[in-house]
């Protein structure tokens, strides 16, 4: 049986991962875009991203777009799998064993 993931379970991190997992598997999303979408501050989002990156669930890529610095966020395969297992564990608690987001 899938277990709850302690890194992902925290409310803000759960929302970050849920947002990234909702997009295509190869999607890279701009930091500011996620910040505005989830209505978070730079510092708050940055801190949670660090935790997710340390766990190997997310990659932050710093690059330049039209000479302006940009940070892109990408959910790793491990991150996507961990999220799916976390969702399965939540459903199991409710007595619904089906997988999915």
């Amino acid at each position: 049986m899938a277990e709850l993931n302690e890194v992902i379970h925290q409310t803000v991190r759960l929302r970050i991962v849920a947002a990234l997992a909702a997009l295509e598997a190869d999607a890279r999303v701009d930091f500011t875009y996620v910040k505005n979408l989830l209505k978070l501050s730079d510092g708050n989002l940055g801190a949670h991203l660090m935790k997710l990156e340390e766990a190997g669930y997310l990659v932050q890529e710093k690059t330049f777009v039209e000479r302006k610095p940009r940070t892109y966020l990408h959910l790793t395969t491990e991150g996507r799998t961990a999220f799916e297992q976390h969702v399965a564990a939540l459903k199991a608690i409710l007595g619904d064993g089906s997988l999915g987001g």
Binding site: T11, A22, L37, L38, V87, L90, I93
Partner: peptide, 15 residues
Amino acid sequence: AREALADIDQVARQT
């Protein structure tokens, strides 16, 4: 668990 799943669903739809 129900609240967490509802939150996931809402964020995914919003995204």
